[in-house]
Design a protein around this nucleic acid. Sequence first.
DNA 1: TATGAAATAACCCTAGA
DNA 2: TCTAGGGTTATTTCATA
Lengths: 163, 163
Amino acid sequence: MALEIEKLLDETGWRLLMELQENGRLSYKELGLRVGLSLPSVAERIRKMEEAGIITGYHAEVDLTKIGFSVLSILRLGSFAGENCSRVADLASAVPEVLECYKITGNDCVVIKVVTCSMPHLEQVIEQLSRFSIVSTSIVFSRPMKNRIITRELLERAQAVQE
Amino acid sequence: MALEIEKLLDETGWRLLMELQENGRLSYKELGLRVGLSLPSVAERIRKMEEAGIITGYHAEVDLTKIGFSVLSILRLGSFAGENCSRVADLASAVPEVLECYKITGNDCVVIKVVTCSMPHLEQVIEQLSRFSIVSTSIVFSRPMKNRIITRELLERAQAVQE
DNA sequence: TATGAAATAACCCTAGA
DNA sequence: TCTAGGGTTATTTCATA
């Protein structure tokens, strides 16, 4: 980890980062109260974390089910013999229902997360993907853990392994 | 989709939702400029979308690599013969390095996303998970698509399938 | 539209190099 | 003495009723 980033992520830096992961719309004033800094100091720290690339953005989280996307799936894509995995990933990413795409190790070289509003809709998406890859489909029943926030404890635990 | 939600997601509602998915810290004033509404109208609309459960939160996005988590993996977990998949999901969710957990259809009944700062660290996490499940590990090379935002076009495309 | 709250910018203070 | 980090205040901008 770069020295610059190490300096930004002291006790206070981590607390700000954790608060913003949980609630990205907290005011600088409120953040200041929670971590014991004045408003301008909070603003300055957060600006630096953004500049350093620690914080890459803020996003509203949408309840997919509520707005009609009742079927969430995770698909593994394999490439046809001798085909390029990068191409599979690019073609898959171009499908609008694909919300996330990972290029991974292993025989199935791509994993994607797909939202659809019904089973026929999912079927249609799979048909599309099947044109250029071998598709293994898993439908999501539930999500016991969604987007856990990154904490200082996790990083310290991680670094302790490095013995 | 509930009627209440349908009413909130008209042209303007969708534009607000898209802007907030892209930048969750935009001010109401700025949002108003972008969608052509007054500040109070924007505030009211967003409050309603939050109350209706369309928007479930706002979160800062953190660059994992920047802060030292250089290894991202996707693991599939199978349960031992006759064991409970729910238990596998719960135990996996309890591991701090697990950022996301999905219960899915298929033989491998759980998929998890794991962050680690090194290969030895990943190895240690896998050892832990192996105590209660059969682990298949894939390391992520890259992410061609990360958290695509939900758009009205996608929903309309989806609903068109329902013929 | 009016009122209060929050963000910004300019400035000062302190501590450490 | 210079710099970095934080605080203070005044002004502007934003949010709420």
